[in-house]
């Protein structure tokens, strides 16, 4: 597996477009993470003037709340790693290197698991990055650091990795079906931001929650902020095993379809 990952690493590390995407991702994530708190605090500050009670000035980024808040916000950017995966998968088709690798001696299974290792590594890097941001923001915004408090709820980062992995697997499926990078990215964006929301809206009851991307997004639900509590809204503050099962099932299905395609098709 490490050998397969090394092969993918040579391809990815030397591909410039990927680095630009990665830098945009870091920049966008950084701006949002550092910007959101000031924004919300300003709202609370403004709104607080007209309220009879004074609102506690509570940071979004204090340990341990930071883990949930930050992984939720980072969730909006999981489309970046998915696009990176689409580019790397479709490259193999546009350069015809998918064929060459089999000619050189990779088995169909190895071809498939090389890409799985790529998606896994991408998720790990993204998770690590968000984790580092979490630590920085947490230490900056927590008055007294207590170890147990710091690591409490840090499982959200692990779940964020799963979220990126599941979303990346969806990108893998689209890339394998469509084979052309621009087209595949278009299909992903169209499905994620237009088609699925419309279908979810048309579906009755909670059935929309079972749609692939929405259920992956449901892994980390909107966090409970102090602000929300003022409005009396309670959100799910934990990872539910039900959400986990649905997302895992989708991940399995996406990759199973790709695996069958890799095994069966002529290259």
């Amino acid at each position: 597996m490490l050998r397969l990952l090394h092969i993918e690493f040579i391809k990815a590390f030397n591909f410039k477009a990927l680095w630009y995407l990665f830098l945009i991702y870091i920049l966008a994530l950084g701006i949002i993470l550092f910007g959101v708190e000031t924004f919300i605090n300003d709202i609370i500050g403004e709104g607080g003037r007209n309220l009879p009670i004074t609102l506690p000035k509570m940071s979004l980024y204090a340990f341990p709340l930071v883990w949930h808040n930050i992984s939720y916000l980072a969730g909006f950017f999981k489309v970046f790693p998915a696009i990176m995966i689409i580019i790397l998968v479709t490259n193999e088709y546009s350069y015809k290197t998918i064929k060459q690798q089999v000619i050189s001696g990779l088995s169909r299974n190895e071809l498939f698991f090389a890409k799985i290792s790529l998606i896994f590594a991408t998720s790990a890097i993204m998770g690590l990055l968000v984790g580092i941001f979490g630590f920085i923001l947490g230490f900056l915004n927590t008055e007294t650091i207590v170890f147990n408090v710091v690591i409490a709820k840090s499982q959200f980062i692990l779940v964020y990795m799963l979220e990126v992995f599941a979303y990346g697997s969806f990108g893998f499926l689209i890339a394998t079906l469509v084979k052309r990078s621009g087209f595949a990215i278009g299909v992903l964006l169209l499905w994620a931001y237009i088609a699925e929301p419309i279908i979810a809206y048309k579906l009755l009851g909670d059935w929309g929650d079972f749609l692939p991307l929405r259920s992956i997004g449901n892994l980390i639900r909107i966090p409970n902020s102090q602000l929300m509590k003022i409005f009396g809204i309670e959100f799910q503050e934990y990872i539910s095993s039900g959400d986990l099962y649905i997302a895992l099932a989708y991940t399995l299905i996406f990759n199973l379809i790709v695996w069958i395609i890799y095994k069966r098709t002529d290259l």
């Binding site: 030397n14 591909f15 410039k16 490259n91 350069y95 015809k96 290197t97 064929k99 000619i103």
Partner: peptide, 9 residues
């Protein structure tokens, strides 16, 4: 097989 296939970059 046929044309040489490599990663151009």
């Amino acid at each position: 097989i046929e044309t040489p296939i490599f990663y151009p970059y």
